[in-house]
Design a binder for these strands. Structure first.
Length: 283
DNA sequence: ATGTGTTCCTGTCCGC
DNA sequence: TGCGGACAGGAACACA
């Protein structure tokens, strides 16, 4: 489900219920998500205070006292739902189905956090905070959009010599992290670059514009609280609204939204995933 | 090393 | 309504 803007929106929704609060009770309702959960998972969470809730790419990172960090990845269908809390401080937005509620955290202050994930492509792990960058899921991640390490020069260096469609390259989390199918499609349209163009064949100037388009797309999506497809909701039950701003994603057959273009949005399959683009203004 | 296809899992939607 | 197939916001993995 979630790409960087959605994960960051979830993080912001969870922060008031989790930061500075102790996990009073943790419940693990199945042994595994995508991978087995760590040994004694619930015991290691119980009684720990959340010092800080952070994010790296599509991972939520909860630094706990005692020196461990809880790593959470939402996969395609994962959600972190908040309910309860005193004095209406937190919205009652559970919306979970019980059946796919895999991990439950009862927080000091009365909030309940439910990790719900029907498809179970999500993951959780515990890892020493001091060496968080060495975790196997995090160690090879490239810079994120809007960070100092991400710019046209970096992107040009990483795309150089690549004989793969630029669409596939931008989905590669080692090149730039946090993007997924939606925002790659959106950024490529914004930059006027076809998803089918070979990564290594794009001029440095156009790659510079692509890096700017990626940053602008992510910044706009963050400001809108991410995108709500189907019934996806933020942690507090609110809907993001960036989906109303989609230029191409999920708009097959509709007209291109670029000023004066007049083209029609097409959908093509690339490495098993849908790419949406306008053949008139994306080259 | 790099590129591509498969796989994990469940739910929903669309056409017959 | 039921049924089959396509498809879904991810990404590790096996293999060429």
């Amino acid at each position: 489900m979630p790409e960087l803007p959605e994960v960051e929106t979830v993080r912001r929704g969870l922060a008031p219920a989790m930061e500075g609060r102790t996990i009073l009770r943790a419940e693990q309702r199945r042994p595994d998500l995508r991978w087995p959960l760590p040994k004694r998972f619930a015991e290691r969470l119980t009684g720990r205070r959340v010092l800080r809730l952070g994010r790296r790419a599509k991972y939520i990172l909860a630094d706990l006292d005692g020196g461990e960090t809880l790593i959470v990845h939402l996969g395609m269908s994962g959600r972190m739902l908040v309910s309860g809390g005193m004095l209406g401080e937190f919205v009652h937005a559970h919306g979970g189905d019980g059946k796919h509620d895999h991990v439950i955290l009862d927080m000091e202050g009365g909030a309940r956090i439910v990790f719900n994930d029907a498809r179970r492509f999500g993951a959780m792990d515990l890892w020493p905070s001091e060496r968080i960058g060495e975790h196997w899921l995090l160690k090879d991640l490239g810079p994120e959009p809007l960070s100092n390490g991400f710019n046209g020069d970096w992107l040009a260096a990483r795309l150089s010599g690549r004989f793969t469609p630029v669409k596939a390259a931008l989905l590669d989390q080692k090149i730039v992290s946090g993007l997924g199918n939606i925002y790659v499609c959106e950024a490529l349209h914004r930059a006027g670059i076809s998803p089918k163009r070979m990564a290594g064949s794009i001029s440095a100037a156009r790659i510079g514009r692509l890096a700017e388009a990626i940053n602008a797309t992510i910044a706009d999506a963050l400001a809108a609280g991410g995108s709500s497809l189907r019934d996806y909701r933020q942690a507090d039950g609110e809907l993001g609204y960036f989906q109303h701003s989609f230029l191409v994603y999920d708009r097959e057959g509709e007209s291109c939204r670029r000023e004066g273009c007049g083209g029609t949005v097409r959908r093509v399959a690339q490495s098993g995933r849908s790419s949406f683009y306008c053949a008139s203004c994306q080259r």
